[in-house]
Simulated assay, not measured.
Amino acid sequence: MRLAVAFALTALASPGLAAQCGNDSSGFAAWKQAFAQEAAAAGVGQAGLNALANAQYSTSTIRADRNQTGVRYALDEFIRIRLGSLDSFASQMRRELNRNPNFYASLERNYGVPAGILLAIHGMETGFGRTMGNTPVVDSITTVAYDCRRSAFFTPHAIAALKLVDRGGLAPGQRGAAHGEMGHTQFLPGNALRYGVDADGNGRVDLYTVADSLASTANFLRQKGWQPGQGFQEGSANFRVLNEWNAATVYQQAIALSAAKLQ
């Protein structure tokens, strides 16, 4: 703890220092020291700065980032690989729905997004919370913010992750996916900060709880243009909103087809 505080104060005392990206782990420590100044200027508090000081370069994140191939499957193949079948996946969705139907009804009342859409996303992203990732979020998001390939894109998300630590919505060692995606529906930290909802009323947004995560997902879709009471199949305005969640057409199609099974 003392080392982390000293680290933050040292960084703040060096106003001319700029965070320089890199392509391997050798410059990560220097980058963190410079980035602490940027983070503090952006409003990150001591807890977030401590988390940054303790962040480790994530080789698993870099390996995953370097080996991305994109989604290139036909729809039927994507459904087979990702879902098994629409019918079996819909049965899992229905079981989840029946655990707390009033909760899903309240989300549709508040945001206009039907249960089927939210359950399809929840199931496709993490298997309804079974697999939320094994990489510490602060490690992964600071690693890709440091990495020169997409530093500009990930830097705001790194700032957001540190702010979430400040607010108690992200534990410093909390684990997520390879690029900092977090919680039941795999929000990037910047989106969690902007669209996160404290659905259970405990005073903080925690996307590792089902209530906050699914309410935040519904809020995200509504803010992106979801039209309550309208259809969501391919060609509709609501289907186009799914592109905001995931840019792969087969992913959007699988969400819509799965959700339709619950209607």
Results as ranks from 00 to 15, higher is better:
V44K: 02
N110I: 00
V5E: 15
G84I: 09
Q37R: 15
R130K: 15
H179C: 13
S151G: 12
G43V: 06
R80T: 03
G22D: 09
Q233C: 03
A8Q: 12
G203Y: 01
I255L: 04
Y195K: 02
F35I: 05
A211G: 04
L214Y: 01
G196D: 04
P228F: 05
V144T: 10
S60M: 08
L188S: 05
F187E: 01
N23Q: 08
C21E: 13
G173H: 09
K261G: 02
N50K: 14
A215Q: 03
A177F: 14
R130L: 15
S58I: 05
Q227V: 15
R240S: 15
G173N: 13
G48V: 07
I159K: 10
N202H: 00
F89S: 09
G133F: 06
H157A: 00
S26M: 04
T126C: 10
N54M: 13
A4H: 09
G229W: 03
F187P: 00
F154P: 12
A171D: 07
F154T: 10
W245H: 10
N54C: 12
V210K: 14
G201V: 03
Q46A: 11
N246D: 11
G196P: 06
A34V: 11
S85I: 03
T142N: 09
P172W: 05
L49F: 08
T69W: 05
P156N: 11
R175G: 01
G176Y: 12
R150I: 07
A19D: 08
N23R: 13
G123Q: 07
E108V: 00
A260M: 11
G70M: 09
F128P: 07
Y251I: 03
A19C: 13
G127S: 12
A145F: 08
A40V: 08
E38N: 14
L3W: 11
R167S: 12
S25D: 12
V165Y: 08
S26N: 11
A192S: 07
I141E: 07
E77V: 11
N219Y: 03
A39P: 11
G235R: 08
A259W: 03
V5M: 10
Q233L: 08
Q56D: 07
R130T: 15
D139L: 05
